Amino acid sequence: MDIAPAQDLGRLTFRDADDADVPALVTLIESAYRGDSSRAGWTTEADILQGQRTDPDGVRQVIETPGSRLLVVERGGVLVACCQLEHRGEAAYFGMFAVRPELQGEGLGKVIIAEAERVVRADWGAAEMHMTVISVRDELIAWYERRGYRRTGRLTPFPYGDERFGIPQRDDLQFELLVKDLG
């Protein structure tokens, strides 16, 4: 699916990921959140988490799970972003959102999340979009709030000891559920 340009972003193309995309998607997601490359953007988690953000098995699982989609976002045939959408009854879950660090701050994120919301309303009839964000990520939560998401105060523990999710650099990490009414 194509969408019209927003600001000066050029034409973005959205499509469902397949197995051939897995290596590039892992690289994109890691670059947006972990390690020195992530510091080029503002979504880095490098100061609170070390280690991996995802791996090929995790990405493949999102692609292959029924009711789940991993959207690949390309500009000019080049992978620039991705996001996970999962059908959860009346709601949809938004996750695994990554934009190439050097492109962050150009407005891509706003366009991508708006398209993700449109897709889950149109394809699944979702009335709400849910996501979880590490609760200490104040700047990121504020960005989502400006997009209409609200904090719920519903917290779940960070999976300490499971290095598939990274190696915490602090002991106060937990996830907070954010919700947006798509009506």
Rank of each mutant, 00 (worst) to 15 (best):
T152Y: 12
D162Q: 14
T152E: 15
S31P: 08
Q7G: 01
E86R: 14
D16K: 01
A114Y: 04
D2L: 05
A142T: 14
F14N: 02
Q50C: 03
A116W: 01
R75S: 13
G105V: 03
A98C: 12
L25Q: 10
E90P: 06
A81M: 11
H130P: 06
D18V: 03
A6P: 03
Q169A: 10
R60K: 10
V119A: 05
V111L: 08
Q7R: 14
E128D: 14
R147G: 04
M131Y: 07
I3E: 13
M129N: 12
L85Y: 00
E30Y: 10
S38K: 02
C83Y: 08
I112K: 04
R137L: 12
A114D: 14
E45G: 01
S31K: 11
Q7Y: 07
F158T: 04
D57Y: 02
F158G: 00
D19Y: 00
F175E: 10
D181G: 08
S68W: 01
E64D: 08
G125R: 08
G125S: 05
I134A: 06
R15K: 07
R60P: 03
V136S: 11
G95F: 01
Y144W: 12
S38F: 03
R121I: 10
L155S: 06
Q7K: 11
Q61M: 06
I134D: 05
D16H: 00
I63Q: 04
L108I: 12
V62G: 01
D172K: 06
L12A: 02
G58D: 13
Y93M: 06
F14V: 01
E74G: 04
L9V: 06
V179I: 15
G109F: 01
Y144L: 07
D123Q: 14
I167Q: 09
R137T: 06
M129A: 15
D2E: 09
R154K: 15
F165T: 05
T43V: 07
A81Q: 10
G10P: 02
L140Q: 13
C82D: 07
G105L: 02
R154N: 11
T44N: 06
P159I: 10
T13N: 04
A81N: 06
G153T: 12
R147C: 12
A24N: 15
G161F: 08
R100V: 13
S68F: 01
P5T: 07
Q50V: 00
E117D: 12
D19V: 00
L182Q: 13
G105M: 03
E163I: 09
G76W: 01
A24L: 08
P56L: 07
P157V: 07
V119Y: 07
R34Y: 00
V72M: 09
R69F: 00
I3D: 11
A126L: 05
L182A: 08
R150M: 15
Q84P: 00
K180E: 14
L9A: 03
Y144R: 11
P66C: 04
V120D: 09
D2H: 05
R164D: 15
R170M: 06
A46W: 05
L177T: 15
A142N: 13
L182D: 13
G183Q: 14
G77Y: 00
R39A: 02
A24H: 14
I29P: 06
